[in-house]
Structures are given as structure tokens and as C-alpha cells.
């Protein structure tokens, strides 16, 4: 076949980000895969942000108090809820991936996903209520 393999790189290069995140017309597993990646990247970014926030302690009590004032704003509290969503989704879906990935419950992987997501939803609702009421 003339130049068939050469065309792969020329006109149809692999697009990993598109393959991972373009979930149009895809099914539950692909949505879970894509959200798992997004939350994973988000949590990794949060780790650095967290360290940066902790470094304000170096500025003494005044610096930390300024941060606490910011942390109590409604927008920041909403970000806390987004963070909790990321932790819950990544953690609970991670349990499904680890179990199914070892061949445990592979046939029930859809049911496992929805049960874990139901648990996650309850935990998220409770956490959001706590975040905004404490």
C-alpha cells in the first residue's frame, strides 16, 4: 500500500487530548475516563496551590488572616465544593477502576459506577451543606 503509514503522521496525527476528552456520542465509561483525568489533573494542580497557600504562613499572622478572609468568601467556598467533587469522583471512580481493573466485578462495572456515584452525591451534598453553614 503506497505511503499508507506515512499518512498517519501527515494528515491524521493522533490527538490524545481529543481522544481522552471528546466524549460526544460516547458512553458512561468514556465520561468516567475523561472526568477521572480532569479531576486527577485538577487535584495535582490543587496540591501545588495548597502548598502556595500554606507558604503565606511565612508572612506571619497578618498574612494568614488575609488569606482566611479570602477563604470565607462565597466564591472560595464554591471552589471548596468543586474540590470536594474532584476528590470524591476521583477517589470513588478510582475504586471502581482498581476493582474492575483486577477483574473484580468487571461484568457489573456500570452498576458499580452508579452505586459509587450515588454514594458520592450524598457525600457531596452533605459536604456542601457543611461548607456553607459552618
Amino acid at each position: 500500500m503506497q505511503n499508507a503509514s506515512a499518512t498517519r503522521n501527515d494528515v491524521r496525527p493522533r490527538r490524545p487530548l481529543r481522544a481522552w476528552f471528546d466524549v460526544r456520542r460516547r458512553h458512561m465509561g468514556s465520561w468516567a475516563f475523561a472526568i477521572n483525568r480532569l479531576t486527577g489533573l485538577g487535584l495535582a494542580a490543587y496540591l501545588f496551590l495548597h502548598l502556595a497557600v500554606l507558604s503565606t504562613l511565612l508572612q506571619g499572622e497578618a498574612g494568614w488572616d488575609r488569606f482566611l478572609q479570602l477563604a470565607r468568601s462565597p466564591f472560595f467556598l464554591l471552589l471548596d465544593v468543586v474540590l470536594i467533587f474532584g476528590i470524591l469522583f476521583h477517589g470513588l471512580n478510582g475504586i471502581r477502576v482498581a476493582l474492575v481493573g483486577m477483574g473484580v466485578g468487571a461484568r457489573q462495572h456500570r452498576a458499580l459506577f452508579w452505586v459509587l456515584m450515588a454514594i458520592g452525591f450524598v457525600l457531596l451534598a452533605y459536604s456542601a451543606w457543611k461548607v456553607f453553614t459552618i
Binding site: H27, G29, S30, A32, H109
Partner: peptide, 9 residues
């Protein structure tokens, strides 16, 4: 494999 199951779908 990352357990997306799109192959099966």
C-alpha cells in the same frame, strides 16, 4: 487499558 469500555460499547 483505562477501563473506558468504549470498545465493548
Amino acid at each position: 487499558c483505562h477501563v473506558a469500555y468504549e470498545c465493548t460499547e
